[in-house]
Amino acid sequence: MSAVPSSGWLYGAIQRGRNRGLGGLYLVVAAFLVLYAVLFPGILSVSGFSKFTQNWFPLALVTMAQALLMLNGGITLAIGPLVSLGAVIAATTMGGALGVPGGILAVALAGLAIGAVTGAIVAHLRLPAIIVTLAGSFIITGVALILLPRPGGFIPDWLSTTLAGHTPVAFLLLVAILLAWKAFLATPLGIGIYAAGDNPIGAFRSGVPVERVKIVAFALSGLLAALAGLFVAAQTGSGDPVIGTPFTLNSIAAAVLGGVGFLGGKGTMRGAICGSLLLSVMINVMFFLGFPPVAQYVAQGLIIVGAVAVPELLKQWRARR
């Protein structure tokens, strides 16, 4: 990595550079996966792998939704409500005239639109994202409860079987979404997310449309969260207006575990994805080992604090030597 190959594959060199500092995370994730496979060898079958990735999939999506905004210097507290709303819209529209395609479209449009509106408020009125999304979370929860006051609705069985059956469709979807993200990050607008997150004034002066970047980031974030809701609805076979609640804080936890900073521009999406995988595996391991739920929360919190404290301690230790 010390020199760009003169024949020129700058993109590759930059991509390799982004793995820098993630080695430790990769190792920890690999160790947990090995531990998991030893404890539950079932994961090594197609069906076991499918179930495992289905448990991880919605968390991966909401972590992307969260990391996207954190990289842009923002944050959202509306992830959980958007997941719920996505599930509710899916469960209330798929039985309608337009069927499943109409339902998917409705979920995607709702996510994009809510995200874009939130983003426009944050960008153009220059309000703090944490407040706007907090307010948004109440509104979205309310709307979800109006649409579907109690769990129910209709999801066709074939959709549940396709997405959450014994085939790794969810995993393939995740791979596709990650490839789409990579392509987006290779556009000027995608790079603009980093630039506007780290140094908004500098990015503006450089010709990055900072406001538009922010609105796009919020819209994509909303889309990902709503799609996670659609998947959760397919998984459970119905819509539930409060099912998304834990995702808000878990998405932040996973992004932080993956090394995404709170001040914008710091971190990588690959790190965030690893963070979500790690969190998902940890939750599963503790669940299957029969930890009482309370102990799970305590352990989860300790691990997250440890995950941010250890690199910092290592840095100080290195600096002192």
Binding site: Y194, D198, N199, G202, A203, G265
Partner: peptide, 8 residues
């Protein structure tokens, strides 16, 4: 004031 992004 520099207009650079540290992580890029």
């Amino acid at each position: 004031e520099l207009s650079l992004t540290a992580d890029l």
